[in-house]
Amino acid sequence: MLLDQGVGKRSKRINITPLIDIVFILLLFFMLSSNFQHWRQIDLSSAEKTEENTEKKTVRLLRILDDQGVFTVDGKSIARGDQIAMQRLIHEEPEAVFAIEAAEGVQTQSVISLLDSLKQQGAKHVSLAGVLP
C-alpha cells in the first residue's frame, strides 16, 4: 500500500507553470511594443552643401501642378513617369540645381516622389525651392 509514493515523486519535480506565465507575459510585451516600421530619411540640406560654390550653378525651377506627378519647367509640362523627357531634362544641364516648388494643395508625397525620380535619373542637386539651399 504505497499511496503516497506518487505524490512524493511529483513534489520533487520543478513546477514550470510560473515560468510559462512569465514567458507569456514577456511574449505579450514584445509583441505589443516592438516596431517593424523601417524608417529612412532624406537629407534636405547639410553643412557641406552650403559651403560649396553655388553661384556658378544654374537653377532650374520645377513646379508641381497636381498630385498626378505633372510638373512644368520653363513653360513645358512633363509627367514624372515620362522617363525619356526626364532624362533629356537632366542631360541638358546635369550640374544644375533642380529646385522644386509646389502649387497650392499638392501633397508631400508628390514632392518626395519627384525628388526620387530626379535623383534616379541622375540629377546631382535637388532642392525645395525657396526653403533650403
Binding site: Q37, H38, R40, Q41, L44, A47, R80, I112, D116
Partner: peptide, 19 residues
C-alpha cells in the same frame, strides 16, 4: 532654416520606386 539648423532631414519609409 531661420533658426539655423545645419542639418535637416525628412523621415520617409522605404519602398521600391513608385513610378
Amino acid at each position: 532654416k531661420r533658426a539655423g539648423f545645419p542639418k535637416v532631414s525628412l523621415a520617409t519609409q522605404h519602398s521600391e520606386l513608385n513610378s
